[in-house]
């Protein structure tokens, strides 16, 4: 089917926001990277907001959007609820960073981490529709989840590089990033392999415009380049580190965007043979 760009932006930015919040919360829980807590939270908030606005743009009748409150159990309702909840917790967390006790903040961070993960997963799970065989697999929301985490790690990495964090911290983030990329490669691979009919597989990796997008944007730009960058990145802080981090983030964003757009391209309905 046609790519629904507003939805692609919605899932990309909610993913970015959730991932970033998760990264901030995780490092907070680990007692590290205090310097990015605030800018990271702001980044997360802005991303979630952009995601939210994109979803409103997707609606032809946003003036009726509140009707969704009546059916929070639906896929969209769950997304809506989780997005709102994550946003609220994030705001709470941001409020707490300044005044509250560390333990309270940590509790909120933990909740935030869980909510972010749930949001990132749910945004993908929305598309697990029996009517779209190409989407109806757990690897789809897993891909969304892992992609969100990778986006979060790379956002964190950019912020840390920008804040001139120490080599140790950078190295652990580098390891996290590499781990995330490997995980993403695995999940994307499993997703592609889960496409049951040869036609679907073919449409992803062999014929049409999809393979170009897949191999070039998802694999090369979204996975290989950031991996290489993480392997060759400078050890210590500096403007080079920041530049590498920036390029790596752009690559994973491009990859994440393409993954999401591709989902629509491969998402034909079932063949209605009798």
């Amino acid at each position: 089917m046609e790519v629904q760009w507003t939805l692609v932006l919605f899932t990309l930015f909610t993913g970015l926001g959730a991932g970033t919040f998760a990264f901030v919360a995780t490092t907070d829980l680990m007692g590290k990277a205090e310097e990015i807590r605030s800018p990271g939270s702001w980044m997360a908030l802005i991303s979630l907001a952009i995601g939210g606005v994109s979803s409103v743009f997707h609606l032809a009748h946003p003036e009726r959007a509140l009707l969704v409150l009546s059916r929070l159990g639906t896929n969209v309702g769950r997304e809506f609820a989780l997005l709102a909840l994550t946003g609220l917790v994030l705001l709470l967390y941001m409020g707490l960073t300044r005044r509250a006790a560390a333990s309270t903040r940590m509790t909120v961070a933990a909740i935030g981490l869980l909510l972010s993960a749930a949001l990132a997963f749910t945004v993908g799970a929305t598309y697990m529709l029996p009517g779209r065989p190409a989407w109806n697999t757990f690897f789809l929301p897993l891909t969304y989840l892992v992609s969100a985490l990778v986006l979060g790690v790379f956002t964190g990495y950019v912020l840390l590089a920008w804040k001139r964090a120490g080599a140790d911290l950078l190295r652990s983030v580098g390891v996290m990033a590499l781990g995330g990329l490997v995980l993403e490669a695995v999940v994307v691979g499993f997703y592609a392999a889960s496409l049951t009919t040869p036609a679907m597989v073919g449409s992803v990796i062999l014929t049409g415009s999809v393979p170009l997008l897949f191999w070039f944007l998802v694999v090369a730009i979204g996975l290989v380049i950031p991996t290489l960058l993480m392997l060759v990145r400078p050890k210590g802080p500096g403007s080079k580190q920041t530049a590498v981090a920036g390029i790596a983030l752009l690559s994973v964003v491009a990859g994440g965007l393409t993954e999401r757009a591709l989902m629509f391209l491969v998402g034909a309905g079932p063949t209605l043979g009798l």
Binding site: H61, L129, G131
Partner: peptide, 16 residues
């Protein structure tokens, strides 16, 4: 009058 035009039904309907 209650449709917000989210098109999830369009995506979800297995029968197009």
């Amino acid at each position: 009058d209650a449709c917000i035009g989210c098109q999830f039904c369009v995506m979800a309907c297995p029968y197009g």
